[in-house]
Every structure is written in structure tokens, then in C-alpha cells.
């Protein structure tokens, strides 16, 4: 059991990702946060970085206190001032502003808010106006975890600005657990980037292994130390464990495939809330991570 005498945890930012969706990232991130909050009250934050589909609040009793919009600046063209040079369209990497013959057309839902178009316009014909792309909700989860979730506006293509706004709530001095979206493309990369450690949750199947490899490569490219949690252990084969052994990646925890865990999940109860015997093992995961990061 972790030392009860320590009253301040190493203030690490730990992201939780997977590759394959549906492996149990949110189960692990919520349970880890709740367990750490038992041990270190007021020293734990959980951030839900799956801004297209935040769901951590569904697995814990959550009380929201505050909501703030996230805005980016998008272009509005003064058609009379425009000289149709096309420099704005050339500069845009997101196809959010285009010159179609003599008309400049904007597509705000494609805009990433980079400001390049307004910057290059030689006649200052482009005004930058705010557009709401999401919101950040804050509250308390399970009575003890400082909880923040990002939520992107529906149909907004680029979610990076919401992720950035969310990550601004990572508190130095606290353990921050950041739940990532599935996959290994931009939204996941933006979430795990600069974290001190990434827990990769996988299932012991060929699908799980395939996507785990992509997630490992992403962590390596971003220089984020990482380890694996195998969830639903027993439904597949040993290939994931063998891969981890060959690659020198720690298997931090194995959660067996048990119907009662799935039933609790479906009732909105994360692992440690339904089955407190899992608190100890999750505390040990944190200790193992602290040790690995210290090396």
C-alpha cells in the first residue's frame, strides 16, 4: 500500500490514451483520479480531453460549478476593401478562406484561428471576429477530484483550440490526470503532448495490439514516457504482453474481463467506486509511474 505519511503526491501530469477506442481509458483515468484523491485530498485534478465526446462525468458523481466559452478568431472580409489578390487564400492551410474568381468566401467551421489571412492581407480588408468553438466546464467529481472537461461545438472541425483551453487548467502543484480521445491523430497528440507520462490502455487482442503500436510510436515521437494497462484481460491472447516485454514497456496493471465491472460501468460507476478493492492496485500504478519518471 502507498505510504500514508506522504501528504503531497509528485505533481505529475499523467495522460491516459489508447489507440483503439473503447479499451477503458476513461475507466482507468477516473478510477486513478478518485483513488489518488482519497490518498491526497485536494491535490488531484482530472481533465477530460476527449472534447468531441467527453464522458468522464458519466462515470462519477459530478457537480458542475462553472462554464466558460472557448473562442477563436475567424476572418470577415470587407468586400469593398478587398482587391482580390488571393493572398489570404494562399496563406490558409485549412481551406477556410478561398478566392473564387472575384469573390472571397469564408468557411468558418474549417477555420483554426491562426490569423494568417488577416496578417497577409495587403489592404487590411480582413477583420478577425470571435467564434465560439466550444466550452470548458469545471466542477467537483466524486466529492474530491477537481474536474475540468472540454466540449467542442458540434460541426466544428478543428478541436485543438478547445484542447489548449482545457490544458490551461492543468495545475502545477497537483497531480493532473488527462483523459485523451481515442486514436492517434491530432486531438490525441495535442492532449498527451508535454505530459510527464502516458498510460496506454489496451485490450489483449489483435485490434488492441495493432492500435497500441501506433500509440506507442506516437508517445516515442512526442518523447512522452509511457506504460501499458491491459483491460479485459482474458478475452484474447498474450501478444500484447509479449510485445511490451520485447519493447521494454511496463505493464502497470491488468484488469480482468469481468461482467460485473461492465455492469457497474453501464450504471455510471467507475471501477474504484463500485469495487474499492481496486483502489490499492491503482495507487500502486501511480507509485510505479513516479518511480519510472524519476529515472
Amino acid at each position: 500500500m502507498p505510504s500514508v505519511a506522504a501528504n503531497s503526491p509528485a505533481p505529475l501530469t499523467i495522460s491516459v490514451a489508447a489507440g483503439k477506442g473503447g479499451t477503458g481509458k476513461t475507466l482507468v483515468s477516473t478510477s486513478l483520479a478518485i483513488e489518488l484523491a482519497y490518498e491526497y485530498p485536494d491535490k488531484v485534478a482530472l481533465l477530460d480531453g476527449d472534447v468531441e465526446e467527453p464522458n468522464a462525468d458519466l462515470l462519477m458523481p459530478t457537480v458542475f460549478e462553472d462554464s466558460q466559452p472557448v473562442h477563436i478568431l475567424v476572418p470577415e472580409v470587407d468586400a469593398e476593401a478587398c482587391i482580390h489578390c488571393g493572398k489570404c487564400a494562399e496563406a490558409c492551410q485549412a481551406s477556410a478562406i478561398a478566392k473564387i474568381r472575384d469573390v472571397v468566401v469564408t468557411f468558418h467551421e474549417l477555420c483554426t484561428g491562426c490569423g494568417a489571412c488577416a496578417y497577409v492581407c495587403p489592404v487590411d480588408a480582413i477583420a478577425e471576429v470571435p467564434r465560439k468553438v466550444g466550452r470548458i466546464d469545471r466542477g467537483i467529481a466524486a466529492g474530491s477530484v477537481e474536474f475540468t472537461q472540454g466540449r467542442s461545438e458540434i460541426a466544428q472541425q478543428h478541436t485543438g483550440s478547445v484542447t489548449s483551453a482545457l490544458k490551461a487548467h492543468i495545475k502545477s502543484g497537483k497531480v493532473s490526470i488527462v483523459d485523451a480521445p481515442p486514436g492517434t491523430s491530432c486531438p490525441m497528440q495535442e492532449t498527451i503532448e508535454d505530459s510527464d507520462y502516458c498510460i496506454l490502455v489496451t485490450e489483449p487482442t489483435p485490434f488492441g495490439l495493432n492500435d497500441l503500436k501506433a500509440a506507442v510510436e506516437t508517445c516515442r515521437t512526442l518523447s512522452v514516457p509511457h506504460g501499458v494497462v491491459i483491460n479485459r484481460d482474458g478475452i484474447g491472447d498474450r501478444a500484447v504482453e509479449d510485445y511490451c516485454k520485447t519493447e521494454g514497456i511496463s505493464v502497470l496493471l491488468k484488469i480482468p474481463h469481468e461482467r460485473r465491472i461492465a455492469e457497474a460501468y453501464s450504471r455510471g460507476e467507475t471501477l474504484v467506486l463500485a469495487f474499492p478493492e481496486w483502489r490499492g492496485p491503482l495507487g500502486q500504478v501511480f507509485d510505479a509511474i513516479v518511480e519510472e519518471v524519476a529515472q
Binding site: 485549412a94 481551406s95 478561398a98 478566392k99 473564387i100 468557411f107 474549417l110
Partner: peptide, 16 residues
């Protein structure tokens, strides 16, 4: 090949 905005790019190309 564009992830997003293929229609915008193609329209620009043919119009211009």
C-alpha cells in the same frame, strides 16, 4: 488528399 476542405480547394482550382 485533403482531410478537410477538399470541396473548397477543388472549387477554387476550377474557378481560378
Amino acid at each position: 488528399a485533403a482531410g478537410h476542405g477538399a470541396g473548397v480547394e477543388a472549387a477554387q482550382m476550377v474557378a481560378n
